[in-house]
Amino acid sequence: MVYRIFVEFFKIWKPYVFPSPVSVAETFIRLLDNNVLFIAIWATTKRMVIGYLISLIAGIILGLSIVKFGFLDRNLRPLILGFQTLPSVCWLPFAILWYGLSEKAIIFVTAIGSLFSITLAVESGIKNVNPLYIKAAKTMGAKGITLYLNVIIPASLPYIISGMKQGWSFAFRALMAGEMLFATKGLGQVLMVGRDLADMSQVISVMIVTIIFGLVVEKAIFGPLENQIRLRWGLKNT
Score class of each variant (00 low, 15 high):
R30V: 08
D33Q: 15
D33Y: 13
N34T: 15
N34I: 14
L37S: 05
F38L: 14
W42C: 09
W42G: 14
T44L: 02
T44P: 04
K46W: 03
I50R: 06
Y52K: 05
Y52I: 14
L56V: 14
L56H: 01
I57A: 10
I57V: 15
A58V: 11
A58F: 06
I60K: 11
L62G: 07
F69M: 12
F71Y: 05
D73S: 11
R74A: 15
N75F: 12
N75E: 11
R77Y: 09
P78L: 04
G82W: 12
F83H: 06
T85L: 14
P87T: 12
V89M: 03
C90E: 10
W91A: 05
W91I: 07
L92C: 08
L92S: 08
P93W: 03
P93V: 11
F94G: 10
F94W: 01
A95E: 00
G100N: 07
G100Q: 03
G100A: 05
L101D: 01
L101Q: 02
K104T: 15
A105E: 00
I106M: 14
I106S: 05
A111G: 03
G113H: 01
S117D: 11
S117T: 14
L120I: 10
A121D: 01
V122D: 01
S124N: 13
K127N: 06
V129Q: 02
N130L: 08
K135F: 10
K135R: 14
K135M: 12
A137I: 09
